[in-house]
Design a protein around this nucleic acid. Structure first.
Lengths: 111, 111
DNA sequence: TGTTCATATGAATATATTATCATATGTTCC
DNA sequence: GGAACATATGATAATATATTCATATGAACA
């Protein structure tokens, strides 16, 4: 009773055709962002919906400075977006790729 | 005329439901492996099909030791497999997740 | 068995990265 | 304007990581 992610093989192959060396380096930079437990926990935390910095700190049980530093990296990579709400900054997932990429990773690990 | 990867949202959501802290750390470890330009280039090189170490070194224009060190990390993460053929070791992609994960990354970057 | 080719590995160095601490910035409200 | 709260940021120190060099292992074959 296995659940499998379905994907369009043709679209996948089209996407990964002729990737330049530069693009591969950019890809590595992107995956590097996913490759830190604090950042992945932040992303996963935001799967619930948008949150402010204090909430994220509480969820992760980490200090505010460490979280803010990582939020900046996530923002720079456009994996999350932010908006101000009074004194607070609200963070949210930028798009569905984040979920998909993490799901693919989980799928790989589960084997 | 945009080409989009299709994926099954329900399957994705099922996969990412209730991921434990430990599993998130394992995911970070996995993505860390993708997060290095040498390793990503090796993986992409293997999209062509299986290759021996010397071929990979030539393709990447990198010295053998550096490549072997990274091959070991890729092997340990089960992203590639290997078999011996006489004096040579042949490396190949372990499964389709690698292509899918890289395609998702590319899809994200392209926006 | 000794030589050559192919690959792996250990140690060392150089570089990158993360968390922490201290402090700065920005917002609200009195 | 000043205090209090929320967040960001710079510098530092500790740790992790990648490449290189030297060398070891392993297979083939004379």
């Amino acid at each position: 009773m296995e659940e499998r992610v379905l994907y369009d093989e043709k679209a996948i192959n089209h996407l990964i055709a002729n990737v330049s060396e530069d693009e591969l380096c950019n890809l590595a930079e992107l995956f590097k962002v996913f490759g830190d437990s604090t950042r992945i926990k932040i992303l996963y935390d935001l799967f619930d919906g948008e949150k402010n910095v204090t909430e994220i700190c509480e969820d992760l049980e980490m200090n505010q400075s460490a979280v803010s530093h990582q939020l900046k990296i996530l923002r720079t990579s456009k994996l999350i977006g932010s908006r101000r709400d009074g004194k607070q900054m609200i963070y949210f997932l930028a798009d569905d790729h984040v979920k998909t990429i993490i799901a693919m990773g989980k799928d790989h690990i589960e084997e």
